[in-house]
Design a protein around this nucleic acid. Sequence first.
DNA 1: ATAGTAACTATGATAATCATAGTGACAAGG
DNA 2: CCTTGTCACTATGATTATCATAGTTACTAT
Lengths: 163, 163
Amino acid sequence: MPKRADLSDTFCPVGRSAELLGDRAVLLILRDLFFGRRRFEEIVANTGLGPQIVSARFKLLIEQVVVERHAYRERPPRYEYRLTAKGRDLFDVLYAMRNWAERWAYEEGETGGGPAMRYTHRACGADVGTSTVCPGCGEPLRYGDLKGEPSPALKAEQAAKSG
Amino acid sequence: MPKRADLSDTFCPVGRSAELLGDRAVLLILRDLFFGRRRFEEIVANTGLGPQIVSARFKLLIEQVVVERHAYRERPPRYEYRLTAKGRDLFDVLYAMRNWAERWAYEEGETGGGPAMRYTHRACGADVGTSTVCPGCGEPLRYGDLKGEPSPALKAEQAAKSG
DNA sequence: ATAGTAACTATGATAATCATAGTGACAAGG
DNA sequence: CCTTGTCACTATGATTATCATAGTTACTAT
């Protein structure tokens, strides 16, 4: 391909987001960061992406101030990657993607009856299903408000990757 | 590249969504469909994508039952593309992307003071800002509930593309 | 001194992308 | 009836991103 089209100067807000989010590697890395994975190798293993792509995307994400790189040990040099406020604010996008997939992207019974990932509202304990507002207490759901429990199938898949 | 990684069999819901949405062309086409653009040439012109990519993506979107192709005239054969229920349910994702961009992706004053695209709630008339729940009446916002008014800069950009 | 771990960088084959041009089916105007 | 125009695509070739694999750097641990 020739140089990928640059959408960062469009005035359409969806276009501007698509410039960053219209990339599977970026989405997978963000997912892992939202799940609390912070280390390079951990993200390479869990996403299944090559280290050169993870490296390139982290450069991009840092440049866009969505992620920050932090040395958590000097000798030997070890780093972790964290979401910034701008990055954490992408929660709604990733959560909307999750909700859509839970509703449409699985065959009947594929996950064993329930959702692939079950979320409950920390504040009131209600199962939030695939809503953007807690069905128990009516509060809008934000990053950190939810407690996730992967289905057995998802748990097994994740264990296989980190093993 | 070798064959792009296939995420359609992962049990992670974000991964399954990323399989479809982690692609700028798909996001731009969906955006146009949500804006009511239905014709092939119109979408080619507005997205700036080449016709071969729009064609390939429509094949994918139809296969995934996110879009349907409908002949609106027999002679000469003319077609339009519409979102299915599964496609319309992606509204939350695109709207979350819009909200994030409005909050983070513009320089101070770049759009002339207001948002790049202003939305008001049809039901109560309130400006929804960048919320997922109407700040006026408290209702969750869904596809069709909003009335959009592009900023002068965005309006000019769109006019330039269709001209 | 050897093995191990974390965080990367380098290389080469392959495939997706963009720009440009072209096709098929028909309608309207001169 | 012949040229021009419109819409919905398909075809071609150069360029570049991506993946798989291997290698590097900088240490610690045994």
